[in-house]
């Protein structure tokens, strides 16, 4: 394999670079005043609930240090839950508790925690350790997603999530992030999660990358990653579009999980979604971005948009655009 690609080759494949993402899309389509809506997960949850968007149930909020002691009672009510910072970024500071073992709590990776350790983690969240700029934060306690059994053989601990990029209300790219042993159960590509491209038109998984290399199997389970048809695909796309409508950001990353019982749930929104999705899906974002941008009149009805998005990402259509 070559050491690097030339700028020309990347342009031909419609690869979006960080600088262009920032100046041509984020700065242009995402008004700064809307950032707090997505940067604060509590705010996002509230907005979503108002608009009838499915989200994991909120168990409680810890806003001040002194409430940290009260976690114990919330923990007592639920076998499994997630504690995360309201202002966390890139999945940092998220603690997933899968269950109990005597007086210990079991983390996703099987390790055990004492109540003190959980409380310490919570006060770390409050003091702003995981928030941008270290400003004091709140901790959110919420339902731990019980992921759909179809993911069992392509995921190692943790919860796989679906990232969809929605541009001007149209889903233009999607991938699934699969936790691995490397990533310590986290669905973060930097940390070694597998990125698995999803065809928008069919909801079928395509190629996968792990640590920036193409793979065909999940590194831990050895299961084939391509050709999986995602359940509820149309609903997932609708959910993503609804989120974009609710929050009003033109260039948005929507993270969705599929719960075994509840179906697709929106986990969080991102006003600055990363670029790795291009490597996972094997397609540059610019192609679709420019196609959407060049349309004077985009459909407004959600089903019309769904069809538009699917047509946009038809493989033969991509060929046409590149030529």
């Amino acid at each position: 394999m070559r050491l690097f690609a030339t700028p020309r080759e990347l342009r031909q494949r419609g690869v979006l670079g960080m600088n262009q993402r920032n100046s041509d899309f984020i700065m242009r389509y995402n008004p700064r005043r809307l950032y707090p809506l997505v940067d604060n997960k509590l705010e996002t949850k509230k907005l979503a609930l108002e608009d009838g968007i499915a989200v994991p149930e909120l168990y409680g909020v810890v806003a001040i240090e002194h409430q940290v002691q009260d976690i114990a009672s919330t923990l007592a009510d639920h076998q499994a839950l997630v504690i995360k910072p309201a202002h966390g970024s890139g999945g940092s500071g998220i603690l997933v508790l899968d269950g109990r073992m005597g007086k210990f709590f079991r983390k996703a990776n099987g390790s055990l925690l004492t109540i003190e350790a959980i409380q310490h983690h919570t006060s770390n969240i409050l003091s702003g350790m995981y928030s941008l700029g270290g400003i004091p934060d709140k901790a959110i306690l919420e339902y731990r997603v019980d992921f759909d059994p179809m993911f069992e053989h392509i995921s190692y601990q943790g919860v796989p999530d679906i990232r969809i990029i929605v541009f001007k209300g149209i889903p233009i790219a999607a991938m699934i992030r699969l936790p691995t042993r490397d990533s310590d159960g986290k669905a973060n590509l930097h940390q070694g999660a597998v990125g698995l491209g999803v065809n928008i038109a069919s909801g079928e998984t395509t190629n996968a990358i792990h640590h920036n290399h193409h793979v065909n199997q999940h590194p831990d389970t050895g299961h084939e990653t391509s050709g999986i048809i995602l359940p509820h695909w149309d609903n997932i796309l609708r959910l993503a579009m609804q989120c974009a409508d609710t929050v009003g950001l033109g260039y948005l990353g929507v993270d969705i999980v599929i719960d075994r019982n509840l179906g697709p749930l929106m986990l969080e929104l991102n006003a600055r979604p990363g670029l790795s999705i291009q490597i996972a899906s094997g397609q540059g974002l610019l192609t679709n971005l420019h196609k959407v941008e060049s349309h004077k009149q985009l459909p407004t009805d959600i089903n019309a948009r769904l069809q538009f998005a699917k047509d946009l990402s038809q493989p033969e259509d991509i060929m046409k655009v590149i030529n």
Binding site: F4, T6, L10, N19, Q283, G284
Partner: peptide, 23 residues
């Protein structure tokens, strides 16, 4: 501040995209 081209490290980061042939 107006440079929207690729960063040098992105040429390495996205080299995986070359696997896909441009028709």
């Amino acid at each position: 501040g107006n440079y929207t081209g690729y960063r040098l490290t992105e040429l390495v980061r996205f080299k995986g995209m070359l696997g896909k042939e441009v028709p």
